[in-house]
Amino acid sequence: MKVAVHGIFLAFFLIVQATWLEAIAVFGVKPNLFIIYIVTLSCFCSKKEGAITGFFFGIMLDFVIGKALGLNAVLLLALGFLTAQFCEKVIRKNSVLIVMLITLITSVCYELFYYVVSFVGDLEFKSVFFRTLLPECIYNSLMTLPVYFVIKKLSNRLWVDKGEIIG
């Protein structure tokens, strides 16, 4: 059941991220549904599930982007694992604001790492930071709001074993 739910979200994000999301781009920047989903999900599920889901979402995103194959897979795997670990060990009771903050921080780490690995030396950091990185991270954080409530609703059915940490 869980795998089917993740599969549906993955298929939906693969399609929508490259098509409809263009319509809600602000200053040419669109949110990254993959980061939002993996981070929010990882606040409700186990480290193992966060890491495995992150890896599969990342590798599929790599196939569609067609550049730096494996980079998103590695990054989303780490994001899923570390977020789940953080929520389990540090935050006992999560809330939408905490998850939004975690999304903001993890998005900054993700995008900075992506920049360092793929573009450092080619793209001017100041321009990238203010024109792409920062707007996307803020946008991701805001878009966490609807995703959080969808996953929270689903978590009551699918991730009952970690129900005690749900706020």
Partner: peptide, 23 residues
Amino acid sequence: KLFKNKAALWLIVLVIILGIAVG
């Protein structure tokens, strides 16, 4: 507490190495 778990630290190191290799 997060970094008490060695798996988290190893994962970060692994991600950095793999990320650079992929790049």
